[in-house]
Design a protein around this nucleic acid. Structure first.
Length: 288
DNA sequence: ACACGGACCTGAAGGC
DNA sequence: TGCCTTCAGGTCCGTG
């Protein structure tokens, strides 16, 4: 479930229950995630309090009262579930329990479960002082909802790149937080084809600056709408209370191959193609 | 430096 | 019923 809007939805769900309430115990499953857990992972979290919960791109960053930060990525299939004291009984034994890898117990009886069937997610610890230079975060591009992300940045980041616009926007060094769904949606909103060469929007190209303006605005608009809808729920719930986000009902192109374009007045049909091994969806009629 | 294919995992869905 | 293939919201590594 996790591109920027889903991760932000998770952050907003966890923040009120997790921040300020001490962690009493952390239990970790047998199988590792994308990275091995750090030394004494559970012990370094027990007794700690999360002081703030931030998001950077698709990462969640929990600052602890121990001068350490817990870095979390949800990979392809990671999700959190918050259970109040009364619900937090029994481990369950269904598919969800089989894929629950980390459980945080809080002092007020709240239980926070991290499940991740494919185990492409990760949790690790870093010193607060070294957080910005951590290898997972150091070279990440700007936040698409922040001031650093604008047409000027896009023009500079795309200049000279011979790959497709689709592949360039999936690159977390160009802009942080976009994934396969929102790249397709943003390109449609901007009227730009995913197959277009990234360099054609680069600094100095004719019409490049105008296209970058449209693209930056489209990225922002799509992400804000998705966050307002609680993210998209495809194969998993998006929210920490187990309920669904509903932005998937607003998709203009993603997953809509063969269906009519939803741009007002456009008679086109959405096409699916594979780029760098991943599906792209676009309208050949209104995206150029 | 960049670009690309494959690898890492599990599960669901569809065809035969 | 079962077996096979394809696909899935991500990213990292090795190879040109």
């Amino acid at each position: 479930m996790p591109e920027l809007p889903e991760v932000e939805t998770v952050r907003r769900g966890l923040e009120p229950v997790l921040v300020g309430t001490p962690i009493t115990q952390v239990r970790v499953g047998e199988k590792r995630l994308r990275l091995p857990y750090p030394e004494n992972f559970a012990a370094r979290l027990a007794g700690r309090t999360v002081e703030s919960l931030a998001r950077q791109g698709k990462f969640l960053i929990a600052m602890l009262d121990s001068q350490e930060a817990l870095i979390i990525h949800l990979g392809m299939s990671g999700s959190f579930l918050v259970l109040g004291g009364a619900e937090a009984h029994g481990t369950g034994n269904g598919a969800a329990a089989r894929h629950t890898h980390v459980v945080f117990h809080l002092v007020d009886g709240t239980e926070i479960r991290y499940a991740d069937p494919r185990r492409f997610g990760l949790m690790t610890l870093a010193s607060a002082a070294g957080l910005a230079s951590h290898p997972l975060l150091a070279r990440m591009g700007p936040e698409p909802l922040g001031n650093e992300f604008n047409a000027g940045h896009l023009g500079a980041a795309l200049a000279g790149r011979r790959t497709s616009l689709k592949a360039a926007l999936l690159d977390q060094h160009v802009v942080a937080g976009l994934g396969n769904i929102y790249v397709s949606e943003a390109l449609h909103a901007a009227g730009l084809a995913p197959t277009r060469e990234a360099a054609s929007l680069g600094a100095g190209k004719r019409q490049g600056a105008a296209a970058c303006e449209k693209l930056a605005a489209a990225v922002r608009e799509v992400l804000l709408s998705a966050i307002a809808a609680g993210g998209s729920s495809l194969r998993d719930h998006a929210r920490t209370d187990g309920t669904l986000g509903y932005f998937q009902h607003s998709f203009k192109v993603y997953g809509r191959g063969g269906e009519p374009c939803r741009r007002a007045g456009c008679p086109g049909t959405i096409k699916r193609l594979i780029q760098n091994g991943r599906s792209s969806f676009y309208c050949p009629r209104c995206q150029h």
